[in-house]
Design a binder for these strands. Structure first.
Lengths: 339, 339
DNA sequence: TAAAAATATGACAACGTTGACATAAATTTT
DNA sequence: AAAATTTATGTCAACGTTGTCATATTTTTA
């Protein structure tokens, strides 16, 4: 077992060719005779030669991309990572994961560092970072390729390729489902004015109510964030009121989990006494009892698409902005009763 | 906005010094006059110069490490990632995540590629990969630094620094807790002969029963893996038997979730009719109803420790094998009744 | 005050690869 | 059969750093 890793020159020496020819074989370039090709390949196998990625990177554009997220929600992140990774592996790219705190004000500087040092050639941005137009522009100004995943029924602009996810339509559909089951007093949990996904789902909720001839009651729209604890607090708040809802739309499954938990604490049977729906189709929504009716969010697919767009952007030096929209499907399970 | 990224030579030119001097300033080397140091730093700030990581890597050992895992359990992975990342950021290291399929037989080849290409200088191995002695040796033979996380009350050998987690003790403790509440028929769900964590927890379970003067009943030990579906299937199997247990030890929280779900399907109240404990203190265990009594597994800490060991191993060229053990604490919640 | 030591700076090679260009050999065209 | 073209191979300079060594300057020591 030799102590140093073999280089392209070691292979060349042993195969009796110039190291450039080895480079040609490795990179599958044209104009290499079959004779030499097989000979070189044999030596490569014999020495177990691996091209030095670092050295190669000095001559080529970086083939790493960063996945930037600010989300404590673990399965969401893992699913996205796996989706991105599937693309990266196909194309020989490397993934740098970059969890961050969007409120720290450090994000631009952090990303500037990894871009400026040539650590990555592009980034995938998720909400809420992806909604920061200025951030996107500043990254673009540094020659970085950017793809963003946002909530919306259309891309907000043509700054960069954008994956948009139609929360509004899905919020509309799931609310309409509740209405179809006879529910009239439907609470919305997890409204947040700075959170695009929340707003989209809220707009869908409102549209469905309007379509059914109902008005949106302020009493039933509770502000909070996308956590279990917030779900508990919002549900408590709601249940303390006089006029209780018959159904409850949690802006994500964690909120719905908090609602489910709180309902149990109050001896309310779900769905008999209270129907609950979530959003995201997280593992929790499948594994709890009753299983939650929710909206499936194909995170792996969404992220894979983002990675595919980013990689093609990095390979071909195009500035073209191909966008891609995702529609979300309802997942009907056991947490909704028919009135 | 210039189109090319500034290099060390650009800084040198502007500061009127040789590029080597700039290198000295950047790397904080001795023997640079304060005068020149401040001048160079000013130019660096002015040009917003970032040393090119790739070029630097050509002259130094890689400062990236790989986190290798084969685990669909998302929060476990995310927690570990975050723990590792906290260390990486402190020390300026980069994390390459490498999910893999340990049964594919490809793992060695995959790792050989990322090590051989100098993409990473070390790897963190998790079960079941970390239990593969031969794999560890082959990685070591490639000059890679290796740290592994295993289940056990002591490191299995001195091949490499090892983080060992005492599943047996924790399995003992939680079983004893069940016994202390008066339970005598305690089922063990998720026995798996090839799974060290499962075996450790099982040994603890057996030891606790023996200590209480009970024998281990084969009827109550169910084989299966660490998934929700398996938990459901195992619980079904158990409940179909005549002599039902009063308590149930799920080898992890997912199994316990499956058990909880199945108990509900059978109209069994938890914990009144059946007590259930899990293992891992996953988000699920906190968010379900009743909240699960379980064992806290400090994944982020464990992984951070692994990363710290690996990084120090990569920096100082030591072969010393520092190990580190973790004890796991019981988390008492609402899924156990007192008989 | 000369010699020695410490401090500060620079010149240049190296890291392992790819790209631009040169050239040699084989094949096709005229 | 000569010229032009295609195919196959090689030479060498980059890429942006860090390490080695040389050298210039300053300070300390004898």
């Amino acid at each position: 077992m030799s102590s140093k890793k073999p280089t392209i020159k070691d292979v060349a020496r042993l195969a009796g060719v110039s190291f450039k020819t080895v480079s040609r074989v490795v990179n599958n370039e044209a104009w290499v005779s079959d004779d030499i090709k097989t000979r070189v390949q044999a030596v490569i196998a014999q020495l177990n030669y691996q091209p030095n990625r670092t050295a190669r990177l000095m001559r080529t554009a970086p083939f790493s991309l960063a996945f930037v997220y600010d989300n404590p929600n673990s399965h969401y992140v893992i699913e996205m990572q796996n989706g991105i990774l599937s693309q990266c592996r196909q194309k020989g790219f490397e993934l740098v994961i970059h969890p961050t705190d969007s409120h720290s004000g450090q994000v631009l500087q952090e990303l500037t560092t990894i871009i400026g040092s040539n650590q990555v050639g592009g980034v995938i941005l998720t909400p809420p970072l992806s909604e920061n137009r200025e951030l996107v522009q500043q990254l673009l100004a540094q020659q970085a390729k950017v793809v963003r995943i946002v909530s919306g029924s259309a891309p907000p602009d043509d700054l960069c390729p954008t994956i948009y996810v139609d929360d509004e339509q899905a919020g509309f559909n799931i609310t309409r489902h509740l209405l179809a089951q006879g529910h009239r007093r439907i609470a919305f949990l997890g409204y947040h004015k700075d959170h695009q996904s929340s707003l989209g789902r809220y707009r869908g909720y409102c549209a469905a109510l309007r379509e059914a001839g109902l008005t949106v009651s302020e009493q039933l729209v509770i502000t909070g964030d996308f956590t279990f604890d917030s779900g508990v607090a919002m549900t408590e708040q709601l249940l303390q009121r006089g006029d209780k809802p018959t159904a409850l739309f949690g802006c994500n499954d964690e909120i719905a989990a908090g609602a489910l938990f709180t309902a149990r604490m109050h001896q309310l049977a779900v769905p008999q006494d209270l129907s609950i729906v979530g959003f995201e189709n997280s593992p929790f929504s499948r594994q709890t009892w009753p299983r939650l009716t929710t909206v499936h969010q194909p995170n792996a697919e969404i992220a894979a698409k983002a990675a595919a767009l980013l990689i093609s952007l990095m390979l071909e030096n195009e500035t073209q902005t191909a966008h891609c929209g995702f529609e979300l499907q309802l997942v009907l399970r056991d947490s909704v009763s028919t009135l």
